[in-house]
Design a protein around this nucleic acid. Sequence first.
DNA 1: TAGATTGTTAATCGATTAACAATC
DNA 2: TAGATTGTTAATCGATTAACAATC
Lengths: 206, 206
Amino acid sequence: MKAPKISDAVIRRLPVYLRYLTYLDSLGVKTVSSQELGEKLGMNPAQIRKDLAHFGEFGCKGVGYDVPYLIEKIRQILKLDRPIPLCLVGAGHLGHALCHYTMYRQDNLRIVAVFDNDPAKIGREIGVLRIQPIEELPDTVKAKGIRIGIIAVPADAAQRVADLLVEAGIEAILNFAPVNLRVKEGVRVHHADVTLELHSLAYYLP
Amino acid sequence: MKAPKISDAVIRRLPVYLRYLTYLDSLGVKTVSSQELGEKLGMNPAQIRKDLAHFGEFGCKGVGYDVPYLIEKIRQILKLDRPIPLCLVGAGHLGHALCHYTMYRQDNLRIVAVFDNDPAKIGREIGVLRIQPIEELPDTVKAKGIRIGIIAVPADAAQRVADLLVEAGIEAILNFAPVNLRVKEGVRVHHADVTLELHSLAYYLP
DNA sequence: TAGATTGTTAATCGATTAACAATC
DNA sequence: TAGATTGTTAATCGATTAACAATC
């Protein structure tokens, strides 16, 4: 649709805007300028305008941005305007936390299946979901149209799980295990790497 | 010590190098070139050399880098060569996961205290740690010399906890709550933001 | 209309990559 | 020594910021 590739830096700022806009909306604020947005988020207003202008003309000169309209537009850009089924692999503490977390959110990303290979966990429930044996993953992914997989298993199992997810036809992976996953071209992997965050944080200690 | 500021992008790559070097070391590999490193990590070798050269001359021309020596040096740079006590606020599923995670790691970052405000949780144990009431935070932080605080509480409590941590003298915060924290100058905050990762991942879906 | 704010072009800044002399 | 690889300088690339005409 859009010829020029949008940089990842831009894409990662959109959810930040979205979150703050949603907050403004909850306060009943109808309009916001890039100036105000920039002040609150500690960002350059020109950057915000430029980021948004990549995708269309969402603002109104002399006025600013209509909050609900901009929320709608950003959600469209991020493809959050349609339901996206996720699955979770690994029903440990982290898995539970993630399940509860996405369960109570108001967006269209929803965990619809949970897998584990521990017989003690299989069959137990997290919220409305029953923990399924990992062997059921391929069929369930197809049956439920699951598009994103979340890996919340120990490091030594992560690559196997990734292979299984990719084989099942998953399109993107969010990986919590502290390992570099290798996946085929076209499958996007994001890392939620606590180790990396803590290590880089340590550097900045006085 | 070093006059020119090192960019955050560089700092965030160091733990990536460190992880892979540690893996190589576990295999008994003694020496590695920026070329090999770059191939395995999907990075430009020149970038790796330049990153490292910011901090000193760690390599050997014609040979490459001594793996154990480089590990030692990166650990020094990141201040991981000395024990850094952490505390965790929020003993939910995420808190449990983080506790177990840092407990079994071989680095010097160690959670040494856990706090919660839920009477049902206070007094219970996570590994060797007893969950303490949040009121004990200031004294415990001082007594144990805690330098980094991890926030794993619901969004609406996060800012209060951040204020409490800063007040207690914490120097850095890792925040898992999906809110923008406001802290005074000099306190570094990193975000481990699952929402942001999932939202940006959704964009890249085909 | 006058004031405000966008969208966009141009200028600046910084980061990545390439190239190569130094040297192990 | 010859081959390999670093550390570093120079070239390239891309992202951020500033400036401003367009216009609500």
